[in-house]
Amino acid sequence: MVNYRISDLMTCAIADMLEDGETVFHGVSSQMPMVAMHLARKLHAPNLVHLNIPGGVNPGTVKQSSYSSAGADLVEAGESYFPLDQIFDLSMRGKLDVAFLGGVQFDVNGNVNASVIGDYHKPKVRLPGGAGSAVLIPTAKKAIIWRTKHDPRTFVEKVNFVTTRGNLWKIITPLCVFVFKNGKLQLDSIHPHTTLEEVQAQTGFKLIYDEIRYTKEPTARQLQTLRQIDPYDYRSTEF
């Protein structure tokens, strides 16, 4: 029995989604994807190209100043410089394989809300807005969203506002992994520590799935490598 935390499982699951040779981007406040990209490069995807919001390419290590995943150290430790405007251009030309993006509210049709909760003109909460998501979700080959919260207010039947729609690939949460398939958000796997009933109780729409699959647990090698590459435990920052 290998002991691990949910942040470990999610980071390893994200790393497993990445393939060797892919060009992958993460933005600000993306500590978990940042660590997952390092993990993938270390274990099974040495030719993965790691891009980030300050413009660093393949930063060699996770340094203590990387708390925001947008620090200058990611450029200083990088092999070269690739600025943000070029990343948008790369994605719109169909050359960005994976983009890690955020959102606050998601519905069964794959719509993402990062703008407002409630009525747009009189919102209960005004959110950060689309920013890069509005460009990168429609244009990246695979858009992956991670959330450290899974409840009926996050996964809803219909979002309050459509910031961007479609072209999602996967959403990973502390309970499960969703995949966008045939125009709907479907259950891809549930994590080993939970049940289908719990996932349904915490989801505001009826789950769609072909069969019940379980997310692969982290291996001892993955966990050992995580401790080496992420000694400051940035993968757990959002919990």
Rank of each mutant, 00 (worst) to 15 (best):
V162W: 02
Q105H: 04
A220C: 05
K63Q: 12
V199C: 06
R41A: 10
V98Y: 03
V116I: 11
V2Y: 02
L175G: 01
D8A: 03
S189E: 11
S133Q: 12
E19K: 14
N58A: 08
I6Q: 12
D151G: 06
Y234E: 08
R227S: 15
F161H: 14
K63D: 14
S66T: 11
D230A: 08
P33A: 04
Y81G: 00
H193V: 01
F239P: 01
V62S: 07
A40I: 05
H50C: 03
G60D: 11
K184R: 13
V179F: 00
E217L: 06
S30H: 04
N111T: 07
L90Y: 07
V125W: 12
N109K: 14
D73M: 09
L185K: 03
F106K: 05
S115F: 06
W146C: 11
D119K: 12
D89R: 14
D89L: 14
L168F: 06
M10Y: 03
H38A: 04
I171F: 02
W169G: 00
G118P: 12
D16T: 10
G56V: 01
V75D: 08
E197Y: 00
A114G: 07
H150M: 07
N109F: 11
N182C: 00
G118T: 11
K206S: 13
I190E: 03
W146F: 13
V179G: 05
D188I: 00
Y81P: 03
R227K: 15
V125I: 14
V108S: 13
L51Q: 00
A134V: 15
R126Q: 12
F161T: 12
S69A: 15
E76W: 14
E19D: 10
L48R: 09
S7M: 01
A140D: 02
D20I: 04
T194R: 04
G71V: 05
E238W: 13
P192Q: 08
S68D: 15
V49T: 15
Q200V: 07
Q222C: 03
P218V: 08
T164E: 07
T215E: 10
E79L: 12
G129Y: 10
A131R: 12
P83T: 06
S7R: 01
L185G: 01
H44D: 06
N3K: 15
M32A: 06
V112E: 06
N113Q: 10
M92V: 13
P46D: 09
T164L: 02
N167T: 00
A134Q: 09
L127H: 07
K206G: 09
P54G: 05
Q228M: 13
S80V: 03
N113W: 08
I229C: 07
G94D: 06
L39A: 01
D119Y: 05
L187M: 03
S30F: 01
T139V: 05
L101N: 08
F178V: 05
S115D: 15
P123Y: 08
D73Y: 11
L127K: 05
T215D: 10
L136E: 09
T11K: 02
